[in-house]
């Protein structure tokens, strides 16, 4: 099968039933995408598929087809990363890749989101350290 990830075309072999998160991490060594709950609740595994945030831990790798996948590794140069660092928007950091991916999708669609829009768009990314106020700040000030 083929996967288009971060503008690279990869050839890989995995069984049907393998999730996109497993394929990214175990086959392509793109371990920036985290698996936490593994059942679609927490958002740590969020990646973009054709620009929309989806949960890679419950997406079948074989169902991705020709869609373009963007992982945290593909967002290295995005100002949102620096903004998370600047705002100190994390503690343990495990949820951070997913947070950044969701945040990037939000500001690409709405460069100046309101607080309500930020909370609505980020509701699917849980942070057990409770860094939410700083995450909100990072998104609010991403272009500073």
């Amino acid at each position: 099968m083929r996967l288009d990830v971060n503008d690279h075309a990869y050839e890989l072999h995995c069984e049907v039933g393998t999730t996109l998160a497993e394929a990214l991490r175990d086959e392509l060594s793109l371990t920036g995408t985290k698996i936490a709950c593994g059942e679609g609740h927490c958002g740590a595994c969020t990646v973009l598929v054709d620009g929309a945030p989806v949960l890679s831990c419950i997406t079948l790798a074989h169902a991705v087809g020709d869609a373009k996948v963007t992982t945290i590794e593909g967002l290295r140069e995005h100002p949102m990363l620096r903004s998370f660092v600047r705002a100190d928007a994390l503690q343990c950091g495990f949820c951070t890749p997913g947070q950044v991916v969701s945040a990037v999708a939000l500001v690409e669609a709405r460069p100046e989101p309101t607080t309500e829009e930020i909370r609505h768009a980020m509701a699917g990314n849980l942070c057990r350290c409770g860094a939410y106020p700083k995450i909100e700040e990072a998104i609010r000030t991403w272009r500073d």
Partner: peptide, 12 residues
């Protein structure tokens, strides 16, 4: 729809 699930799940 807006109050269902999370943004990622609503995209999927």
């Amino acid at each position: 729809c807006r109050l269902a699930a999370s943004p990622q799940l609503r995209n999927m």
